[in-house]
């Protein structure tokens, strides 16, 4: 799989990454190389093999429905780039 400039632009947009125009060829080359490596997977027939998402065969543990967290807004917002009236601010969202 060789990725073209348009592919890189599309992926970068999906991932919300600003990529400088002059870096795109390098990313295209690097990513194509990685995909080439990855495509070695096709050497093995995996028909009928159940996908494995976790190393351990465990089931999800369930939590008791209890409120354990208290209001820590001041602490949490101390590290926020921009807040006002307890809200996180972002550039205008258009629906």
């Amino acid at each position: 799989m060789t990725l073209e400039r348009a592919d890189i632009e599309k992926i970068a947009h999906l991932a919300r990454l600003q990529i400088d125009a002059e870096d795109i060829p390098l990313y295209a080359r690097n990513l194509s190389g990685i995909l080439e490596l990855v495509e070695q997977m096709n050497r093995v027939d995996t028909t009928g093999v159940e996908p494995m998402a976790h190393p351990l065969e465990m089931a999800q543990r369930l939590r008791r429905d209890e409120v354990t967290e208290t209001n820590q807004r001041a602490r949490f917002q101390r590290i926020a780039p921009q807040v006002e009236a307890g809200l996180y601010l972002v550039p205008k969202v258009i629906e």
Binding site: V38, M41, N42, V44, T46, V49, E50, P51, M52, A53, P55
Partner: peptide, 14 residues
């Protein structure tokens, strides 16, 4: 082609 395949191989490796 990628993710699911990789998860299958993960099982084979395990």
């Amino acid at each position: 082609a990628y993710y699911l395949k990789a998860q299958q191989l993960r099982r084979l490796i395990r």
